[in-house]
């Protein structure tokens, strides 16, 4: 049976404002199917976002929705979650939103391991403002502010999240909606901070400036660069040039107990704070 997206959408807000063929739609659909998978009550979910094309997603979802300031979604989300720890808080962010202007909030939300899920739509550019380069624009590529080729090194958002302490981290591309759905579902289920990076096409901005101005060629560019994490682990850094590594970067206990994660949280933040309340009230 076809999935009933209508159950979770604000149908009166459709058609959406995204360009036809934009990758964000795939991510939104994967999110809605994930909501069905986890079976949460719509009243109990808050969707929070910053500013950008990606950040328009919550407006289409029939939940409590909050479109905040550029880069700051996680700070509002943290306030909501701490105020109502039993409710579910999910955040949508663009690559610029999450890792440029919001980079500080991003690493600190990871560090706290607070029980929220962040979906970063990485389209390697600032889509909404006309395709300027972002912290994830690959070296050498053209954008409206790097017409001679980008020289700014890129963040790997998954590695960043992992190093900062998020307890579930995964990346999939919009070419594989089912995988994306699986990862988002696992992220929602994880009791801790989850980061799912969805590599997406912005053919209108990033694509157009790099000779792939339509959805198909933009998505082919993504497909050509995809390397599964297992394979990447066997490779040398200099072989991993201009690639998109997909898979689950942090999942189970086994992964989390590796030495690199020695200073990562043993607790989830709202749980830890509940214990503080108990302590303070005993005194």
């Amino acid at each position: 049976m076809a999935f009933e997206y209508e159950k979770y959408l604000r149908m009166d807000k459709i058609p959406h404002l995204w360009c036809p063929g934009c990758g964000i739609g795939v991510v939104l659909k994967a999110m809605l199917r994930s909501l069905e998978n986890v079976g949460w009550e719509k009243n109990d979910i808050a969707f929070v976002s910053g500013i950008g094309c990606t950040s328009r997603a919550p407006g289409y979802i029939d939940c409590n929705t909050l479109h905040t300031t550029h880069g700051r979604a996680l700070t509002f989300a943290t306030g909501i979650k701490m105020a109502k720890p039993d409710k579910h808080v999910v955040v949508f962010s663009g690559d610029g939103d999450a890792t440029a202007i919001g980079g500080n909030h991003f690493i600190h939300a990871c560090r706290r391991n607070i029980d929220m899920t962040l979906v970063v739509v990485n389209n390697n550019t600032y889509g909404m403002t006309g395709g300027q380069h972002s912290p994830t624009t690959p070296i050498g590529y053209k954008t409206s502010t790097t017409v001679y080729g980008n020289i700014d090194p890129t963040f790997d958002i998954c590695m960043l999240a992992k190093a900062a302490g998020a307890s579930y981290v995964a990346r999939a591309t919009v070419n594989k909606g089912k995988v994306l759905e699986k990862y988002i579902t696992k992220g929602l289920e994880n009791k801790g901070f989850s980061v799912i990076v969805a590599t997406a096409n912005c053919h209108t901005q990033f694509g157009r400036k790099n000779k792939m101005g339509d959805p198909i060629s933009s998505r082919k560019w993504i497909a050509d660069r995809e390397i599964p994490l297992e394979k990447a682990r066997e490779m040398k850094a200099d072989e991993l040039n201009d690639v998109i590594i997909t898979g689950e970067f942090i999942t189970d206990e086994q992964e989390r107990t590796r030495w690199e994660n020695y200073n990562h949280p043993i607790h989830e933040y709202t749980d830890a704070y509940k214990k503080i309340i108990e302590k303070a009230q005993k005194k």
């Binding site: 808050a46 929070v48 909050l66 905040t68 300031t69 700051r72 996680l74 700070t75 509002f76 989300a77 943290t78 306030g79 909501i80 979650k81 701490m82 105020a83 109502k84 409710k87 500080n104 909030h105 600190h108 704070y273």
Partner: peptide, 20 residues
């Protein structure tokens, strides 16, 4: 909650207030 900076602190109180 001690946030990572004042921008975050301000965002957090708006979020908490919206949650009632």
């Amino acid at each position: 909650i001690q946030m990572e900076d004042e921008i975050a602190a301000m965002g957090s109180i708006i979020g908490a207030s919206l949650a009632g």
